[in-house]
């Protein structure tokens, strides 16, 4: 399949930039490390805060970092640029979807990052194993993996939606930036949602961001109360978001054809 070739080619080019890869790993690790340090200070002599122990915080931010490699890969800008360059013509003419292509490219890149990150993550996890508080049954592990997969799909749909807004907006980076900020706050990347001011927790329930990161990560920590319910919510958000995406996509193509690309 042609997408498989794109996948391989992207991996090949990426391997050329080896300093690049190592630095990305290091770069990605910095923010969570600092967050954990901050929470340790807050904990002080207490053993737990808001239901989170030291171990919970370490596990939480480790999971968020791991989740970032699995789930996230921003390709909205790539789609935006493709629209600007008129690449959408290919989609209109050939049985080749440019959006799908960009998504696949990004997946390849994430895949490499994951491969390189995994051994490092494993080492770090081992170093802090006395802290790491993950004890899940087989079923729970399975459901967690499903949850991460659903989170990844939801993230991809959000990215794709932002990307195709380029049919209307000259610059989509403000929208992409806003989305990333929301992901940080409402997705639980910044801090566990349950520790944040109530206002944000309430808003987060109605936005898709929580279901990209926070839900799967909570499951990993064994803090997901009602796993099947949460999974169900993820599916609902996926369906709704994909519906919105399709509507925008169709309207966008029409506009694109109307303008002449």
């Amino acid at each position: 399949m042609k997408y498989w070739r794109t996948f391989l080619l992207t991996i090949q080019t990426e391997l050329q930039y080896r300093a690049n890869l190592v630095l990305w790993i290091i770069e990605g690790a910095i923010a969570p490390v600092v967050m954990v340090l901050a929470w340790f200070v807050v904990l002080g002599n207490r053993s737990e805060v808001g239901g989170y122990t030291r171990g919970d915080f370490i596990t939480y931010y480790l999971a968020v970092t791991f989740g970032w490699y699995v789930v996230a890969g921003t390709f909205s800008q790539m789609i935006g640029r493709a629209i600007k360059m008129g690449e959408m013509n290919i989609t209109l003419v050939k049985p080749y979807n440019v959006v799908l292509e960009k998504m696949v490219r990004e997946q390849a890149w994430k895949f490499i990052s994951l491969l390189i990150a995994l051994p490092i993550l494993a080492v770090v996890t081992y170093m802090f194993r006395s802290y790491v508080t993950v004890s899940l049954s087989g079923v729970q592990i399975f459901m967690t993996m499903v949850s991460f997969a659903l989170g990844a799909i939801l993230f991809a749909i959000i990215e794709a939606t932002i990307g195709i807004l380029a049919f209307w907006f000259v610059e989509i980076w403000p929208i992409a930036d806003t989305s990333m900020a929301c992901m940080n706050v409402f997705g639980g990347m910044l801090a566990p949602l349950t520790l944040m001011p109530i206002f944000f927790q309430r808003v987060a329930a109605y936005l898709p961001f929580k279901y990209v990161f926070f839900v799967p990560v909570s499951m990993l920590l064994g803090k997901g109360d009602n796993a099947s319910f949460e999974l169900g919510l993820q599916v609902i958000f996926i369906v709704v978001c994909f519906g919105i995406y399709s509507l925008i996509w169709r309207a966008g193509l029409k506009r694109y054809e109307g303008i002449g690309g």
Partner: peptide, 9 residues
């Protein structure tokens, strides 16, 4: 080629 790229790492 793919294997050459790996080696070049």
């Amino acid at each position: 080629g793919f294997s050459a790229s790996l080696r070049s790492l």
